[in-house]
Nucleic acid binder design. Structure first.
Lengths: 121, 121
DNA sequence: GATGTCGATATAATTATTATACTTAGAAGA
DNA sequence: TCTTCTAAGTATAATAATTATATCGACATC
């Protein structure tokens, strides 16, 4: 079982438990990492445009609060998905961008958007 | 823009806003539909094995509570992703399975598992 | 001076999730 | 008969996550 497994192989094997080389589930921890009301949406915005300032992200995710955006970005940075670049200007400027690890989540959004294209009216 | 868009086309276009034919975002509503601490994990379990009884699901998702499993399954059913089949026996037996709409989420889990294979130690 | 900017932080109020106990109708065992 | 057990929930209260609102800091502009 490796990362070159095709979708057809995945389909055939998903009936049994799929594990990484070290015996872990490759799905559950990722789902947990992306858990939280805003994380996926933040990452998707950064897929569309990157880098993005704090205020731009806030505008795109409109009803989000400062608290949640700050906390989510901190956790995404801690997980290595997002890079934070701070410029020492007044008023402050902070830019967020996806790391390679974060950009590698793009296929997930492709799959989501394919589903959405099919089922969202 | 249609659902036959390849991943390469998606990659090239994700820099601009991607929309369904009716002008909606095909990602955000799906993300919101799958929001909540347990929904993705429940669907993944049902990808692995289906149908599954309430108690089996509960065992697989171990620390989940009755309340959350019940509520999440109700919402997944309301969204047409999960089918609930109740048998009038004592003690009761209720089996949950994925609908076609639910099974079509499988590519999302494939993408997630590919990422997990690459990044989870 | 007074006001505005931007990326936060602080606090309290509201939801979401968890923990615990309980319900149901009958089967099986004592 | 009477108690115990089952499976799929429901009811209630406690805890955690999210939201609403106000504020900070250092400087620029009015």
């Amino acid at each position: 079982m490796n990362q070159l497994m095709t979708y057809e192989e995945f389909q055939n094997r998903v009936g049994s438990v799929i594990l990484t080389e070290s015996g872990n589930c490759p799905v559950t921890p990722v789902v947990q990492m992306l858990q939280g009301k805003w994380k996926l949406q933040i990452i998707y915005e950064l897929c569309i445009q990157s880098p993005m300032r704090f205020g731009e992200l806030k505008k795109m995710l409109k009803p989000i609060t400062n608290t949640m955006l700050t906390n989510a970005l901190k956790e995404l940075e801690a997980d290595g998905l997002v890079h934070r670049e701070q410029y020492n200007e007044i008023p402050p400027r902070v830019e967020y961008s996806l790391t390679e690890k974060g950009r590698d989540l793009l296929p997930i959004f492709y799959a989501i958007s394919q589903w959405g294209m099919k089922y969202i009216p």
